[in-house]
Computed example of a mutant assay.
Amino acid sequence: MRRSEFQRAVEAEFGPRGQVLTIDLVLSDLGNRTAAEALAAGTAPREVWRALCAAADVPQERWYGVGRLDPRER
């Protein structure tokens, strides 16, 4: 997962509150850092996405494949 895919996934899953979650929600799976802090520290976007999904109770079937552009849209 690329960082741009992470950002699209957050927007698709959480809508307007997504950016707030990445800044304010402290994730224990990421060493008690926020998603934004973890990304800035070099944590892989996929790992941050999974931790965010787990903390926000996103069903696991929605953890994979989000954020990718349809090949026809590239």
Rank of each mutant, 00 (worst) to 15 (best):
M1Y: 04
R2Y: 09
R2T: 15
R3I: 12
R3C: 08
R3V: 13
S4C: 04
S4F: 08
S4G: 10
E5T: 10
E5N: 11
E5F: 03
F6G: 02
F6S: 01
Q7E: 14
Q7H: 14
Q7D: 13
Q7W: 06
V10C: 08
E11L: 14
F14A: 05
F14T: 00
G18P: 11
G18K: 01
Q19W: 08
V20R: 06
L21Y: 10
T22M: 10
I23W: 09
I23E: 14
D24S: 14
D24I: 11
D24V: 10
L25N: 05
L25W: 00
L27P: 05
S28V: 13
S28L: 12
L30K: 03
T34S: 15
A36C: 09
E37Q: 15
E37H: 03
A38N: 02
L39E: 03
L39Y: 07
A41N: 11
A41H: 07
T43S: 14
T43R: 05
A44C: 06
P45Y: 01
V48Y: 00
W49N: 01
W49F: 12
L52W: 02
L52F: 01
C53A: 12
C53V: 08
A56G: 01
D57V: 07
V58D: 02
Y64L: 09
Y64G: 03
V66Q: 03
G67M: 06
R68Q: 12
L69W: 06
E73R: 10
E73M: 11
E73D: 14
E73L: 12
R74F: 10
